[in-house]
Simulated scan of single mutants.
Amino acid sequence: MLSVCIPVYNVDVTCLTEKLIKQADELSINIEILIYDDGSKNDYKIINRSLKSFDQIRYKELKKNIGSAAIRNRMAVDALYNSLLFIDSDSEIPVDYLEKYLPHITNSKMIVCGGRVHPKQLPSLDKSLRWKVGKFKEDFSAAHRNKVPNKSFMSNNFLVKRELFNKIQFDETIERSGHEDTMFGIKLELLGIHIFHIDNPIVHIGLESNMEFITKTEQRLETLKIIESKNGDNHLLYDRITILRYYRILKKLKLIGLSGVLFLRSKDFLSGLLQNTNPSMLIYDLYKLGYYSHISKKIIQ
């Protein structure tokens, strides 16, 4: 028996849920699918409300957006079954998706992550940055992810026992999406909880436009700054997040102010470079380091 948890925000999940039900029927698995809407636009709510007619689906609309960490915690508490499978709503699953998780459902001592991949071809030119970041920084095999398993944790596609999850949960003080996966992986490592990666990736199809992704990147960095201010003594934070390692070097060299000033002067130019058809990952990393220096400089002052 399996509880599939799908937090939804401005996504049509009818196709995803119908595929899950079909696969479960073919495998004779008893499943429930929790679809919790976290403050979507009304157009998406109207579409997804049609799923209430399925016996396997529990559809719920939250009165206000509570964020990706809190909604996952709430779904875990509300789930009927002991095995939880979390899937991001903007995902496309392979035909043998549930089948590949079956051998791991009885394991109560570890978290199993299936991974993520992005479309083989660039879907559209205005999504080149998110697509390339995904291809270069996220699309890794299970063998690669298992080298540093906790660092490679992603919440978009993972299986866990409810008792284990409820002992840990996501950090709800991280209200905006950004690095809750990182902190969850660090917490697991500190508690000695094992993460095992398998090759069962979903396809991430909900790619943001270049400008939307740049804005989201900035928001994630602002969230990271809050996390760092609260957890600055945690060595794993700097080990797991590359941008913080380079920021620390700049800080030791007393170059944060200069880095922030240079970023402001070149921000528009760098943003333009990131929106071309083949954006440089080096430029993307420099943009992140510059923006982080900029917001850190404001806080220091």
Rank of each mutant, 00 (worst) to 15 (best):
Q56V: 14
A76R: 07
E32A: 09
S293A: 14
L253C: 04
H235T: 07
E218V: 00
S83N: 08
F153I: 01
M110V: 10
I87M: 02
Q275M: 15
D239L: 13
L16F: 06
L164H: 13
L102H: 00
N48D: 04
I300F: 12
N278G: 08
G185S: 00
Y36S: 03
L34I: 01
Y81W: 02
L27T: 12
E92W: 15
A142T: 06
V148R: 09
Q56T: 13
E222S: 08
Q23M: 07
N200I: 01
V261S: 05
L289W: 00
I202R: 03
M281D: 07
F213C: 00
I71A: 03
H197R: 03
M1H: 08
K230R: 10
L102R: 06
D233M: 09
G134K: 10
N30V: 12
E18C: 11
I57H: 07
V148W: 06
K147T: 08
I198D: 00
K120D: 14
L286C: 09
A143H: 04
A70D: 04
F86E: 01
E212P: 02
G114L: 01
L27A: 15
L159W: 02
D25C: 10
M1N: 07
Q121T: 13
E180A: 11
L244E: 05
F54L: 14
K100E: 07
L102M: 08
H294F: 12
N10F: 14
Q121E: 13
L190Q: 10
K132M: 10
L164N: 14
L255Y: 09
T106S: 08
M281L: 15
K267H: 11
K254L: 11
I66T: 03
H294C: 08
S28W: 10
E61G: 04
T17L: 08
L102N: 00
I174Y: 01
V112M: 02
Y59W: 04
R248S: 13
E163R: 06
D38E: 02
L102G: 00
S280Q: 07
G115K: 09
F213I: 00
W131E: 11
S229T: 01
E189N: 12
D285A: 08
P103M: 14
H194Q: 10
R58N: 09
L84H: 01
Q275W: 13
Y291L: 11
E222C: 11
V148K: 12
G178M: 05
E189T: 05
K161M: 07
I300K: 15
K41F: 04
I295V: 13
N231A: 01
K167I: 03
K120T: 11
V203E: 04
P201T: 14
I6K: 01
S68K: 12
Y292K: 05
I256Q: 05
V148C: 02
K187V: 12
V117S: 10
N65Q: 13
Y246L: 09
H194G: 00
Y36P: 02
V13I: 11
E163Q: 07
Y291S: 07
